[in-house]
């Protein structure tokens, strides 16, 4: 995994999404949006009601995170990824609406992986439990929707060299499946 590091700009260009492969080590820079369980529920409800989501989904990356409160003078508190499978039931709907990338931790359901192939999107895994370290790559943070949800509000983040690994790609590649197969002793 050491060696080549791929720089990725967000929002994601179509060519970037197509060229990324499971196992690629990336550094993401640009604008990303936070959303976890409660925000996903509201975004999907908005889409189903024909209303605009809190941000234009096309090409964007959503980061599954609920940060700790920022101390005075700081941009954000600790901000590592939360477990992604809880968002799986909402994922196909968001990808259909144009979302191109997700950052979280842990594996996805077969239906979510299939939706990534169908709608051409990627899933990046960040290191779970490294929230103090990851927060240093976040340069600005602003709540843009659902403020009443507290830690679960939707935030617009500007990130610089956010470290992640491509976990699922548009061809169905899966780092969890591949990694495990390589190291299991049966």
């Amino acid at each position: 995994m050491s060696g080549t590091i791929i720089r990725v700009e967000s929002p994601l260009a179509e060519e970037a999404v197509e060229s990324l492969r499971a196992g690629d080590v990336v550094r993401i820079s640009g604008v990303i949006y936070t959303a976890r369980d409660a925000a996903h529920k509201r975004i999907v409800e908005a889409l189903d009601a024909g209303q605009a989501p809190p941000f234009e989904l096309a090409g964007q990356i959503v980061y599954y995170v609920g940060p700790t409160p920022a101390r005075p003078g700081e941009v954000i508190g600790s901000a590592g990824p939360t477990t992604s499978y809880r968002m799986d039931s909402y994922t196909p709907r968001l990808l259909e609406a144009g979302l191109k990338g997700m950052i979280g931790k842990g594996n996805r359901s077969p239906a979510a992986v299939e939706a990534m192939k169908r709608f051409r999107a990627v899933y990046f895994a960040a290191v779970g439990g490294a929230g103090a370290l990851i927060s240093k790559r976040i340069k600005s943070s602003e709540i843009i929707a659902y403020e009443d949800l507290g830690a679960e509000a939707v935030r617009r983040l500007v990130v610089e060299d956010f470290p992640a690994i491509v976990a699922n790609d548009i061809l169905g590649g899966d780092i969890f499946e591949a990694g495990r197969k390589k190291y299991q002793r049966l």
Binding site: S78, G129, A132, L133, S135
Partner: peptide
């Protein structure tokens, strides 16, 4: 990364995990 995260958290009094 996890060992570095633990050091950063302790030195800067930041939560280890959000």
């Amino acid at each position: 990364a996890l060992l570095e995260n633990a050091r950063v958290a302790r030195d800067e009094k930041r939560p280890i995990c959000q």
